[in-house]
Design a protein around this nucleic acid. Structure first.
Lengths: 218, 218
DNA sequence: GTCTATATGCTGATAGAC
DNA sequence: GTCTATCAGCATATAGAC
């Protein structure tokens, strides 16, 4: 930790570049972010970017892996929830809450993740495979398991339909460039209340359907 | 009609450019599609592209408006369904079926629309506003009306949550660049069966919830 | 109408002075 | 470590020969 702080004092340019690049890659995507733009925003010389980071590509990789390294920890907590809890309901609540928190929160870390995932979804770079292996696949595998617990007697294609339904409702918050932001966010309530409302909406769908089924049998 | 065919004979280069550009814009997006690529694919000289179409931008506009002009007609049919039908159920079925058909069908016309919308959602061009005015806003306004009919006593934010839920489940099929395609499509059934399955999944959610509510009151 | 040649500008990256 | 100057490459677009 002290190491990091010391380096910040010794190499301010390095950190300025990293901060500027993070913001620009998130805002404009890999393609439209130029080395010159990064240098100007970081208030350093253009050549410094390639001096500290070998290339634009390697700079992106640094920012990319750093961002998803942070998020893999709370996600592992979700796996624990599944194992400890006998029922799927609480775990499903936690899973949807985790995803909505990641894609709807406004804090810097969540916003960065959301924007990077959104960019990789519509214009994948060579690092998209890493995103899948280290973050996305493990996360959605949890959802698959939970749905299998919730709907043990359903056909594979029905399980998959429920899976896509959940995923679609969570990932629709990824793209929020204007004018699309007007559609998926809600000005009527606070952001935190909106997350809660959507969580109840998404999880409520399956809960109601399953309890309805059970009620019909009885 | 004969006019068009005659022009195709007289100006084959014009149509070759249009065909090549349509495919490339859909596949690579506006930014990554270059005039040189279009010319090479159309097997014409590079200067011809700017000769027939004033600029790359104006060529994109031609393809863009042409694509969404075609799709506005069946969408108007949906408005008629809402007015004729006393109930919201059939109209909601039709609405979701229309969206899924547009975003999950493999025919050229649907694929083009889907890819253009996907590109405009993640990296909007100056024509994104047109897309909203002529196609997207009218279409989702129908959904808003239908949900208001289905849930007349719900609070505005609850209506909006249901709205986002529907939209999310339909729009998750927009981005299908590998490896994301593996997630939202289903190899277990035919594409047409998958559309039907998802339609029942999406509409079934709200139907069950509402009938459950009604059953609880009784 | 179709071609070659070229203008102009931006990209990532680097060589070499200080 | 930081700067200026510059490279090679590709972008859109156009002028002018044929």
């Amino acid at each position: 930790m002290n190491e990091v702080r010391d380096t910040k004092k010794i190499l301010p340019a390095y950190w300025h570049i990293l901060d500027a690049a993070r913001e620009l890659f998130a805002e404009l995507g890999y393609r439209d972010t130029t080395v010159r733009l990064i240098a100007r925003k970081a208030e350093v010389n253009g050549a410094s970017v390639n001096y500290y980071f070998r290339s634009k590509e390697s700079l992106y990789e640094t920012i990319f892996s750093e961002a998803f390294e942070k998020v893999s920890k709370p996600q592992m907590g979700l796996v624990a929830t599944v194992k400890d809890q006998g029922t799927w309901e609480a775990a499903l609540d936690a899973w949807v809450g985790f995803m909505l928190g990641l894609f709807l929160s406004e804090d810097e870390e969540s916003s960065l993740i959301r924007k990077l995932v959104a960019r990789e979804r519509s214009m994948p770079t060579q690092f998209c495979a890493d995103l899948f292996n280290s973050f996305f696949n493990p996360t959605i595998d949890i959802l698959r398991k939970l749905l299998k617990m919730a709907m043990p007697d359903s056909a594979p294609e029905e399980l998959h339909a429920a899976f896509v339904s959940f995923l679609g409702q969570c990932t629709c918050f990824l793209n929020r460039d204007p004018p699309w932001d007007k559609i998926v966010v809600c000005d009527l309530v606070s952001r935190q209340e909106w997350i809660e409302l959507m969580r109840r909406q998404i999880v409520g769908n399956i809960k109601t359907r399953l309890s309805f089924k059970t009620a019909s049998i009885m």
